[in-house]
Design a protein around this nucleic acid. Structure first.
Length: 839
RNA sequence: GCGAGAGUGGCGGAACUGGCAGACGCGCUGGACUUAGGAUCCAGUGGGGAAACCCGUAGGGGUUCAACUCCCCUCCCUCGCACCA
């Protein structure tokens, strides 16, 4: 054994060993319990960053731990390889997107390897390869045949910078989720997946996601956005037209004093004479600064009381939710209230708060439930009851019905880009839309393409691709030239991983054995996007009999971001840490300000790269620090000194074993003493920290404690030496998931056969964790007054006696009446007094 | 505005089901070893106080023998949703 810890040599050696000996290859063993641990696969940008590292290391610890617990663990990795950056790089550098992507993959793969993650690379998948995207096309056709994929013309979200459309989920605050450019509306023919057909099921499924963070489930529920209410028909006075409105408050129908249409509502144009004014309202649509209205000059008939009320066009009424038209009840909706005040429209109260009288001067809308008022036959009823009764009464007259609405829209999957899965559809002049025959799949993405980035699908110019024959009639026909959203690729990749690369992708017994994913780990940025699409896809796959379950991801861990402090100079802007010395900028000598701790980013110059880190300290230090700095779901603050601390810890462990090699093979039948006890306590603490909520930071803290105790201990007897030997072996095993290279090496040093990961996880003996002596904590009236060492097995009554007998305690009891004495968990005595003087 | 989560030493963070607040690490202070120390090792380290002791988990109230933990109010931060009728 070398005297010094040398991470570089050790890490190379064991990475080679693991790879040469297939240590990380999944063993599918039906006799054992399976565990599927998955980290969200990366887009191959070419560079691994600390966020990836943190994600993968968390997954790797869980994987290695579960393997040591004897489970058959599936831990795969692959590449989300289609997407825009490849295309942009192609335009910029004149390389083919495939070449750019594949060389990035090679680079990232070696970076991932250098942190020692135990992936089963025999299952590696790359979504831009035909053998993968063939199945996107196959699923598309299955969905087309079931009416779940359809084509329609509609206004879509268009990103000019990306030159393509975006799904609703991919628009964040009116900006593109990827490039942050402003998203505009454009009318296009697009392919959609009918995710709305599963809206109710996806919503109900949320109740079963007990292994997910609550806020992620809430985000999914909000996104689906179910609301129940009624559709009500308002006739247009003096016309055959009717306006269909949606409301969640049919109970307030008698209070409707006007009707509002969305600016793009079909009737808006018909009813409005002043086209210039209408244009202004259309321009103001969706702007959240002010509510604008335009009176059409027409009136609508309220079906519950035949009252004639004005019809307005309003910029705040959404066209793509409900029916694009609303009834306005200013007394009971704040938005309508504001609008009514602005345009001097009547406000009529029809719901009265419990225990109050109808007021005359409302200062704000009353939006709660209450008692019906001024509502014809429904007056004096409870407003909640009235909802159903009014809806029913409208329904019998054919003027309304109960309706459930969802905010969720169908998933638009067409992208006017090259680097994606071709949509397997052919347009024939006689047969119309015809799917490609399944035995002709995959539709291969052509090689020779001129990429211009102009926003027209590049495939449209590839004649050899576009021109084809109709699968139905054989006549000349044209292919669809849009490609699929890359979120299609990631909606089922976890199923592909169940089978090796040399096996069929949808092999039933593999899917049945490994799915669902037991632990999924990734960033919270996919809380709605990828996770909702995957839940949808899984249900579709269930309905086409590919899988037999509803939910793909049993437990979800959304890891926190990797952050670091920032430095800013008033003249030179953001600074690298090495540009700051003694609070001054090395460029201009100004005083610098320490900025907020923020997510690592190039622009803020607060990035630490995995390469420099592993070069300096080795992968194990990087792993231990990123796990020790905070629990996985929280953000971590990167600290160079903290990394040093983790490095010191591993060095001290090395030194400890080096100094105690003589203890390794000493055996003894006597199993007691403080080292023995501490070891069992540590096994318990580490195991429960991992099992309970993956709080690796406290697990590592416990290992540090054991190390500290061992370092301070001086062995006197063979029993002591045996205890140390046993403690060291346990320490190596317990630390192995966190610092795998070091522990593999130390495992060899103590004379064991590799791999340490084939060795069972240590067990603790509950009896052995018990202290013989404890420090009895004595309180008087809840305040700590004394501590005293006592034997742990004394009965409670003796502990009370000891507490009362303590000199310090007696001082504090002087002049007081003892009311009660409590013994808590055998460790604490609290003497409660009445405070009254005895004298 | 609505919803969720959080607020603990100089810093990152611990604390089971209400039971010793501050585990572990960083930093800092002192010491040892050293030609040297930004290496290593040892000791100390919430604040106040000479001490007894007092104070202390964002702030204020409450429940309890006992509150970081439970309840009510306020402040602040982070995230999500945001004219969804």
């Amino acid at each position: 054994m070398e005297e010094r810890y040398n991470p570089t040599t050790i890490e190379c050696k064991w990475q080679k060993y693991w790879s040469d000996n297939n240590v990380d290859v999944t063993v599918k063993d039906p006799a054992r319990q399976k565990f599927y641990c998955l980290e969200m696969f990366p887009y191959p940008s070419g560079k691994i960053h600390m966020g990836h590292i943190r994600n993968y290391v968390i997954g790797d610890v869980i994987t290695r731990y579960k393997r040591m617990r004897g489970m058959s663990v599936l831990h795969p990795m692959g590449w989300d390889a289609f997407g825009l950056p490849a295309e942009n790089a192609a335009i910029l550098n004149n390389v083919h997107p495939r070449q750019w992507t594949l060389s990035n993959i090679a680079a990232m793969k070696s970076q991932i390897a250098s942190i020692g993650c135990s992936y089963d690379w025999s299952r590696e998948l790359t979504t831009c390869l035909p053998e993968y995207y063939k199945w996107n096309q196959w699923f598309f056709i299955q969905m087309y045949n079931r009416g779940l994929a359809y084509r329609k013309k509609s206004f879509v979200n268009w990103c000019n910078a990306c030159g393509t459309v975006l799904a609703n989920e991919q628009v964040i605050d009116d900006k593109c989720w990827r490039c942050d450019d402003v998203v505009v509306q454009k009318e296009l023919e697009q392919w959609f997946f009918r995710i709305t057909a599963y809206a109710e099921e996806l919503l109900r499924g949320c109740d079963t996601l007990s292994g997910w963070p609550e806020h992620v489930v809430t985000m999914q529920r909000n996104w689906i956005g179910k609301s129940t209410g009624a559709e009500v028909l308002f006739a247009v006075d003096g016309s055959a037209e009717t306006i269909k409105i949606f409301t969640t408050r049919p109970d307030t129908l008698f209070g409707a004093t006007f009707v509002c249409l969305a600016p793009l509502h079909p009737l808006a144009d018909t009813l409005t004479a002043d086209k210039t004014a209408l244009k202004q309202i259309i321009d103001a649509y969706g702007k959240d600064d002010e509510k604008l209205g335009l009176f059409t000059g027409s009136y609508a008939i309220n079906p519950v009381n035949n009252e004639s009320i004005p019809i307005y066009i309003a910029n705040f009424v959404l066209m793509d939710y409900g029916t694009g038209a609303i009834m306005s009840v200013p007394a009971h909706d704040q938005r309508d209230f504001d609008f009514a005040r602005k345009y001097n429209l009547p406000i009529r109260q029809v719901i009265v708060a419990p225990d109050t009288q109808p007021g005359t001067d409302l200062t704000a809308a009353y939006e709660d439930k209450g008692t019906m008022h001024n509502s014809g036959e429904f007056s004096d009823l409870d407003s909640e009851e009235a909802k159903a009764l009014i809806t029913q009464s409208l329904a019998t007259r054919g003027l309304g019905k109960a309706v459930t609405n969802y905010k969720l829209r169908d998933w638009g999957i067409s992208r006017q880009r090259f680097w994606g899965t071709p949509i397997p559809i052919v347009y024939c002049d006689t047969c119309g839309i015809v799917p490609v025959n399944q035995d002709k799949l995959p539709v291969i993405l052509p090689e020779d393409v001129v990429l211009t980035g102009t926003g027209v699908s590049p495939l449209a110019d590839v004649e050899g691709f576009v021109n084809t024959t109709c699968p139905k009639c054989g006549a000349g026909a044209r292919r669809e030239t849009d490609t699929m959203d890359t979120f299609v690729d990631s909606s089922w990749y976890f199923i592909r991983f169940c089978s090796r690369g040399d096996e069929p992708p949808l092999k039933q017994d593999n899917i049945a054995y490994f799915m669902p994913v037991d632990q999924y780990i990734g960033g919270v940025e996919h809380a709605v996007l990828h996770l909702l699409y995957s839940r949808f896809f899984t249900r579709v796959l269930r309905d086409i009999k590919v899988v037999r379950f509803d939910e793909p991801f049993q437990r979800l861990l959304t890891q926190g971001m990797v952050c670091k402090e920032t430095w800013k100079c008033p003249t030179d802007g953001w600074l690298f840490p090495e540009q700051v010395r003694d609070g001054r900028c090395l460029l201009c000598d100004s005083e610098v300000v320490r900025g907020r701790t923020e997510k690592m980013s190039k622009s803020k110059k607060n990035v630490v790269t995995p390469d420099e880190l592993t070069a300096k300290y080795g992968a194990d230090t990087a792993r231990v620090f990123s796990l020790f700095a905070a629990p996985p779901e929280k953000d971590i603050e990167w600290s160079d000194q903290g990394v040093e601390g983790s490095y010191r810890f591993l060095n001290r462990l090395w030194g400890l074993i080096y100094n105690n090699l003589d203890c390794i093979n000493v055996t003894s039948t006597v199993a007691k003493g403080k080292i023995f006890r501490k070891t069992h306590q540590t096994i318990k603490k580490v195991t429960t920290s991992i099992e309970k909520d993956y709080h690796f930071n406290t697990a590592i803290a416990a290992l540090m404690e054991l190390l500290n105790e061992l370092s301070a201990f001086r062995a006197a007897t063979d029993e002591d030496r045996a205890a140390i030997g046993m403690a060291l072996r346990s320490l190596i095993l317990l630390l192995a998931p966190f610092a795998p290279h070091l522990c593999e090496e130390l495992w060899a040093v103590v004379g064991e056969k590799p791999s340490v990961f084939n060795h069972p996880w240590p067990q603790w003996d509950e009896l052995a964790t018990k202290e013989e002596e404890i420090e009895l904590v004595i309180q008087v009236d809840g305040k700590l007054r004394a501590k005293q060492m006592i034997s742990a097995d004394l009965p409670d009554d003796d502990k009370k006696e000891i507490a009362l007998g303590n000199a310090k305690v007696q001082e504090h009891l002087r002049g007081k009446n003892i009311k009660n004495i409590l013994v808590v968990r055998g460790r604490l005595v609290n003497i409660a007094t009445s405070g009254d003087s005895i004298a």
